[in-house]
Amino acid sequence: MTAAASDLRAGAVARLRLSPPEWPLVAPLGLIFVGFFLAPLALLVWTSMHADAEMTRLGPESWMRFLGDPFYLKVAADTLLLGLKTVALTLVLGVAIGLIFLEASPAQRTALLFIIILPLLLSVVVRTFAWIVILGSEGVVSNAALALGLTSAPFSLLQTELGLIISLAQIELPLMLLPLLSVMGRIDPNLLDASRALGASRWRTLWRVILPLSAPGLTAGCLLVFASSTAAFISQSVIGGGRLIYMPLVIWQQSIVVYNWPFAAVVSLCLLISVLGVIGVIHWLGRRVRA
């Protein structure tokens, strides 16, 4: 090494050593996160430990009221079931689109991505509103069934769980598809050809090659769909009407209408904890499938 090059190198090293610390880069987001995310959540836990709506004394009564009431436990179970059913439907539809995506040309893939991302960016309120038009008694589904002679009277799928799950599928499907397609897009086409050449049917190729290789995308998609559909306040309240009750509606009613913040905080935390629990299970399942 020449003297000049060594000088230059020493200079660079010195500059690196004298360089300013890097933590200021993360400090702003970190402070915002602690001050306006962790602090409120800690306060939520504190609020939930109050016994009465006026928050005059501490006590486990709000928790007992939720955990001891079969009505609220059923609401909690219904919420988690709704999430699981939505995951199941979006999983089937998502894999079907994924398989079409696998065999699509680059131009078709671009078009498909556009069709998936546009609804994702469109307001949830707008998409929910569209389902009122489709599922109502004067809506598309009812009119089509009448025209085909499948039914003799107009019917409404609003305020039914089926209607809610279909509309949630539309809202959540992009969340399933984005991680899934990104993983599927990386599958080596030669593997599929090899599977075929070795005599596997297309079903067998799907089960033994495509789905195992897509497991990380499927896991990520299921997590996002479950988390989003259990907390989908707008769809649950608009499509479900007053008839179907889920935890987000209870949180809203208890806090904004009834002003019982401790109880609303309890329901919020139960929603948070149960969603985290199911996410943990999905994550664990995903890792087992891969292993």
Binding site: V92, L93, G94, A96, I97, L99, I100, I115, I116, L118, P119, L122, V126, R127, F129, A130, W131, V133, I134, V140, I166, A169, Q170, L173, P174, S201, R202, W203, L206
Partner: peptide, 27 residues
């Protein structure tokens, strides 16, 4: 079996696309 596969995937894919795009067009 492969014909059934094509039919099932095609049908489900069509339903999925209709569910994704239909509401946007209807509204």
């Amino acid at each position: 079996a492969d014909a059934l596969y094509a039919a099932v995937v095609g049908l489900l894919g069509l339903i999925a696309l209709a569910i994704l795009v239909g509401p946007v067009l209807v509204v």
